[in-house]
């Protein structure tokens, strides 16, 4: 069986500066795969390239066996690949519900209302505040909304870009638990994080990125116990 997402020798550059220098990795169905690394390692660039917001200079991206390297961003969403962008990027002046409906923009089927219910089940606070402009939310609530919104496109693969950024430990735990819940419900997840501990604990597989290249890979547990990772990301010596 081929992997759900296959990234091969991906290179992305901003003008002359190469941000991603030929990385390859796979995400299989049902997995939670974590990409970890420091600021500027190329994690966000990788995600943005996969979802079609950036074009690679070389390499290929295959999703469910189909080459999507040059497919337009809005068509990629329709294929079942959702991207919850860095910094959440919720629509601040729209209500929670309008935000969620926009998540389902690419869909034309009749199941949207059912998925709205599912999103409210996942995060009951969203139902409570469905009529509130999303810009009035706290960071954690905005992150919940961003995840709920991404789920509204009913993705097979959900890409989360630093969901724990700027959140309190409690809220971060809540978000990470939801990642596991989503995995159990059958969504494959590609998780980009600076918080290595949280990201690797739940990952079936992990990759460590450093200045545009993958320097380490393995199962979540392996990476967590690896001396290099412990030194570089978990602050132990």
């Amino acid at each position: 069986m081929s992997a759900m997402l296959e990234v091969k020798d991906l290179e992305v550059a901003y003008g002359k500066i190469k941000a991603v220098k030929g990385i390859s990795f796979d995400v299989n169905e049902g997995e939670v795969v974590s990409l970890i690394g420091t600021n500027g390692a190329g994690k966000t660039t990788t995600l943005r390239t996969i979802s079609g917001l950036l074009r690679p200079t070389s390499g290929s991206i295959r999703f469910k066996g189909k080459d999507i390297t040059t497919v337009e961003a809005h068509d990629i969403v329709q294929l079942g690949l959702a991207h919850s962008p860095e910094g959440r990027r919720i629509f601040p002046r729209l209500t929670v519900e309008e935000n969620l409906y926009l998540g389902a923009f690419a869909r034309k089927d009749k199941g949207i209302d059912a998925d709205l219910e599912a999103a409210y089940e996942l995060f009951p606070i969203l139902r409570e505040r469905r009529a509130q402009p999303a810009g009035t939310f706290s960071g954690g609530e905005q992150q919940m909304l961003a995840m709920g919104r991404a789920m509204m496109s009913r993705p097979q693969l959900l890409m989360l870009d630093e969901p724990s950024m700027g959140l309190s430990p409690i809220m971060m735990k809540r978000i990470m638990t939801t990642v596991t819940t989503l995995q159990q419900q059958g969504t494959t997840i590609l998780l980009v994080e600076q918080n290595a501990q949280a990201a690797l604990k739940r990952a079936t597989k992990g990759y460590v990125l450093e200045v545009g290249s993958i320097v380490l890979s393995g199962t979540g547990a392996e990476l967590l116990s690896s001396d290099d990772v412990r030194k570089a990301y978990l602050g132990e010596d």
Binding site: I76, S84, L94, L102, R149, S153
Partner: peptide, 26 residues
């Protein structure tokens, strides 16, 4: 219409709209 909702999303945040599957250019 759906188109109108897409326009709202573009006005609010074009990058995010694109990530939601809105065909911003179209």
């Amino acid at each position: 219409s759906r188109i109108g909702r897409g326009w709202v999303a573009i006005r609010e945040d074009e990058r995010a709209a694109e990530a939601m599957g809105v065909n911003t250019f179209g």
